[in-house]
Design a protein around this nucleic acid. Structure first.
Lengths: 340, 340
DNA sequence: TAATTTTATGCAAACCTTTGCATAAGTTGG
DNA sequence: CCAACTTATGCAAAGGTTTGCATAAAATTA
């Protein structure tokens, strides 16, 4: 019952020719007679022949497949990066396999191993927030398997990297808050282990310093994630301060939305009493009431650029003396959750 | 410079044994002496040997990989289905490749071809909204490649299918609106070609009929997509009616959110003057003001179940006389956008 | 017509791994 | 000490495809 996939040998046997002839006919080799070519193409079509890439890839030692590893796939942030990657590699006839580390170092390691086994031609990795050791990435480098790290940095791993300049994004955002008259600006920070969270925090601090505003520990609280629910407790903590802030710069839009819900529930007016600023420009953010001011990151472009750099590596000698570190610009998007 | 991946033959040569011995040593075959086994394992580890699955898969005619095709990946709806799939197949040591059709029939076809070529063991497909011909799916069936269709139906393709009972979900939702006192209930419908949109529309109509409320064409308007922006125009159309509705049942949460923004901008009170009900229970929905009432779909479970059924097919004879059609329950989630 | 060139096809190796069968060496029992 | 058995290893085929080289047949030239 189990009908096998049609193979070249099968076509060859049915036509009484050799597999080589069939292969050449299918690839328009000049040394094949028109009659044979025609017969082969016809039979191939009627049997719905599809080349077995497993065999070809084994022969070529190349799979035209890249491995993409992200912390999670359900956020718009990462899924739109993936869109950028896909649109770039599609035109080069590449495929990708996607792995989710779920912010777990162990899973990340295991996905790297799996993808290595299926012989991907290269990796595009945004490391998990619990990844502190980079042995698995170093191994890729040692084995000369192209790797591009994006969005989140791994210091000490010398490979191509693509980031967004989040430091300046945060700096400009907080500067804007200061210019609009806010004096007590709080920050809901992300996990310190993430370079992105650190850079946003640094940008926040620098903006304050530049204006001579003291950086106060009470105004820096930590969130344990990036969803609205993770913004709840940090915000409650801020509101409970003897001198609560008049602006909150949140690590991302999800957390900002959680913050807004707490603030509105407390009967505090946004932005009159407290300005809110997010990060990432989630597509939902403009539909909240008030609509959320935020810093937009070029996610799609980051995916495109990372893929482009990886493909370059794959198609060149992978000369690791020339490492590219790219930084993309973010953009401040002003809506109604921040004062003018 | 290009260091090759370590192979079994390489290890064999370095140790002066045959590849077979190395293979057996690595797999703990009983007929290998402890000394050899130890030496092989040690060298394999130090060379960071990773089996070449390409070769193995070619031999086994099995890749332990399934192909998943969804219309898009950026929505929470599909990405959480993918999560369910991944969590199920992970424990069976399977991988997946993900393709996005972007609601394009042509892309869908091409992804099916690509995935067939890389010899996936089975398919999990939620067809694009422009897929009217199912030849590519029939071909899979004819070639005896296991296929499970989920979320969106393809009538006439007799394979395993997993859906959510959206008809009853919609029915209950609209019944609730009626019970809460709404008399003029509108529906922002999705593209008719989608079984899911049709079923929701039918559920809406049936609920009205069951209560003797006439189904009026003016209250059924069409949206061109599932994002907030796609809810704008349909809602404006409804508000411009001589007798505007007192409730809107939207095809999904995205559209409902767009609807809410139009209604609030018009100074109309939700839910006092107009109740709003969505579909899908997007994680953002509870954070809107008012929080959005909606119908929750068990997306993660749908992914899990689809994967489970597919794996069963793959690991059994794929007896197509026993087709499974599964239907999962949705759940009405009441929040503040609908009257009590 | 014989020699040469052109045209069309086949053979076999390679890619890497697993596994049934064969075989060599070593061990046991009579 | 030889037969029978055990233990450890090797050989070769298989999986599907491509491609350099060889070769057979056909066409051209002298």
């Amino acid at each position: 019952m189990n009908r096998q996939r049609t193979t070249i040998t099968e076509i060859a046997n049915k036509l009484g020719v050799s597999p080589s002839t069939v292969s050449r006919a299918l690839h328009n080799h000049p040394a094949i007679s028109d009659a044979t070519k025609k017969a082969v193409l016809k039979l191939a079509k009627s049997l719905n022949y599809q080349p077995n890439l497993l065999a070809l890839n084994l022969l070529r030692k190349k799979t035209n497949t890249i491995g993409v590893i992200v912390p999670e796939i359900t956020s718009y942030f990462f899924s739109s990066i993936i869109n950028g990657i896909q649109d770039f590699i599609k035109q080069a006839d590449y495929n990708m396999v996607i792995g989710q580390s779920n912010e777990s170092y162990k899973e990340e390691r295991s996905i790297v191993d799996t993808f290595s086994s299926i012989q991907v031609d290269g990796f595009l990795i945004s490391p998990s927030s619990s990844t502190k050791h980079f042995g698995h990435l170093q191994t890729l480098k040692e084995n000369n398997i192209p790797l591009v790290i994006f969005d989140r940095d791994c210091e000490g791993v010398d490979v191509d990297k693509v980031f967004v300049d989040e430091y300046n994004g945060a700096l400009q955002a907080v500067e804007y808050l200061i210019n609009s008259g806010c004096k007590k600006i709080a920050h809901i920070a992300g996990p310190k282990i993430l370079s992105t969270a650190r850079h946003r925090l640094e940008g926040y601090k620098m903006a304050l310093k530049m204006r001579g505003i003291p950086v106060e520990d009470q105004y820096i609280v930590k969130s344990n994630g990036f969803m609205p629910k993770h913004g709840i407790n940090p915000t409650k903590k801020l509101l409970a301060l003897p001198d609560p802030p008049d602006a909150i710069f949140a690590i991302n839009d999800g957390v900002a939305i959680g913050a807004m819900s707490v603030i509105k529930a407390a009967g505090i007016k946004i932005p009159e009493e407290i300005s809110i600023l997010g990060f990432d420009d989630d597509p939902h953010s403009s539909y909240f009431k008030p609509s959320l001011s935020t810093v937009s990151q070029p996610t799609y472009e980051m995916g495109m650029l990372s893929a482009r750099i990886l493909m370059n590596r794959i198609n060149s000698g992978n000369d690791l003396t020339k490492i590219r570190i790219e930084s993309l610009y973010s953009e401040l998007i002003l809506r109604d959750s921040s004062r003018k």
